[in-house]
Design a protein around this nucleic acid. Structure first.
Length: 118
DNA sequence: GTCTTGACTAAGC
DNA sequence: GGCTTAGCCAAGA
């Protein structure tokens, strides 16, 4: 359809499963998309993301919870603002631990894998 | 067709 | 906490 590969679309779909007020790392998103270890692919998928899409890309951060964009950049500020708007605390360019608590990994399994919702 | 770059990660120092 | 190395895949030149 849009020239993007199925893998990229799988990433987008996975990002949409991230619950509001919660964040996921690129690696988690890739795993959710059925592509474990392809974290870098997740980054490309988001970069390929068309403007105005319904994909909450701002909920995707690095493995350590830091924003992938360079601090001070417009994209960085926009992501921080979007996260805060959902109740996610962002300090020094990193999301608060609460949003990426290890226990949240259990929730990841409850996010319902593709095709399991409702 | 090959080479480089990139919104990454894990491991080692 | 930081920097470097190696591995991964896709898009652009």
């Amino acid at each position: 359809m849009s020239g993007v590969t199925a893998s990229v679309r799988a990433i987008w779909k996975a990002v949409r499963t991230i619950p509001r007020g919660r964040v996921a790392s690129y690696g988690e998103v890739a795993a959710l998309a059925g592509l474990p270890g392809r974290a870098r692919l997740a980054g490309h998928a988001l970069r390929r993301l068309p403007a105005g899409s319904d994909v909450p890309w701002h909920r995707v951060v690095r493995a350590d919870g830091s924003i992938a964009f360079a601090p001070g950049s417009e994209a960085h500020a926009r992501q921080v603002a979007a996260l805060r708007g959902e109740g996610v605390a962002v300090v020094r360019g990193r999301v608060d631990r609460e949003a990426r608590d290890p226990r949240a990994m259990l929730d990841a399994l409850l996010w319902a894998p593709p095709g399991a919702e409702s």
